[in-house]
Design a protein around this nucleic acid. Sequence first.
DNA 1: GTCTATATCAGGATAGAC
DNA 2: GTCTATCCTGATATAGAC
Lengths: 180, 180
Amino acid sequence: MTERKENIINQALKLFAENGYINTSTNKIARAAGVSEGLIFRHFTNKQGLLDVIVEVGLKDAESFVLQLTKIQDPREVLSVSLELPKYLIGRQREFWQLYHSLKYQNPEFARKYKESDLISKLTSVIDNAFRELRYEHPGEEAAFFLLIIGGMFSLLTKEETGNEEAADMLRFIKSKYRL
Amino acid sequence: MTERKENIINQALKLFAENGYINTSTNKIARAAGVSEGLIFRHFTNKQGLLDVIVEVGLKDAESFVLQLTKIQDPREVLSVSLELPKYLIGRQREFWQLYHSLKYQNPEFARKYKESDLISKLTSVIDNAFRELRYEHPGEEAAFFLLIIGGMFSLLTKEETGNEEAADMLRFIKSKYRL
DNA sequence: GTCTATATCAGGATAGAC
DNA sequence: GTCTATCCTGATATAGAC
């Protein structure tokens, strides 16, 4: 991967996240990356191709996190770490996750295209297992509820501003609720 | 409000929700509404003006729901009805709420413009009060958490497909968790 | 209130040279 | 791999007639 190519990806991600995918012209991207517009098309075929690369790279992070999760033995620890997922991911790539969620809301096809569901179902089963080991009465439902909470944490954190502190408080509160 | 004007609003809402605001041209709207393109601009000045009207109308529904909420005495009932808010609103205007959330994610300014925060803070205080009356130890944090849950229900319901049934199960589960 | 026609403009994409 | 120049399309918005 040449430096210029990488530059295009980084600048595009930044602009897509700030202003939205559609609102960001290839022209703007080229200027931000200090590169000619044509080069974008050489490397990525079209604007969509550029987005595809960005998303694939970004999702790898989440995949590796979930993979780590499967290696944890203690069920309490599994739940506790799961709750940290939004904070962890957004801490590393806030821009990407903002972009990701906005696109997902906009276009239902989107999540399917990048096989997000595989990731979710793996995460769900790990959490389900944890509740099962902890002898919760309705582990399946608990897991679904837990995922809803994780999703909520994501929203909280994505909404910058006061979101960060608010989320930290929330995290503490949830952990105490579950005795983690 | 003339019939044609109303038609423009309805068709625009439908198309905006389906394909996104930016992806929907005034041309498409005009054709869908069986109306000339110029008429849109006569009535709404520009495309943004059309969106403004749609959002203002749509939000009134949520406002009136929250207003009803303030009139309920029994705190358990307050919580229970609050949880129904997503289902109620989306049941009445699924398209609108899909549009609303996608725009909100896309553009942080968006929610501010239409004073969504007023609505949220009113809802929060009602819920906070309920937990206070129920003698919960940390009513403020409980209320914030409860709002996170409500937000999660919204996401669940917005994602059509199997979302509906899943959400019904979730609702039942949450209510039993809170003994409502 | 409504339509038709059209001006204007910007974005995505391509061609060809280096 | 990279740049410059350029084409083409489609979208917003306006003007003027009815």
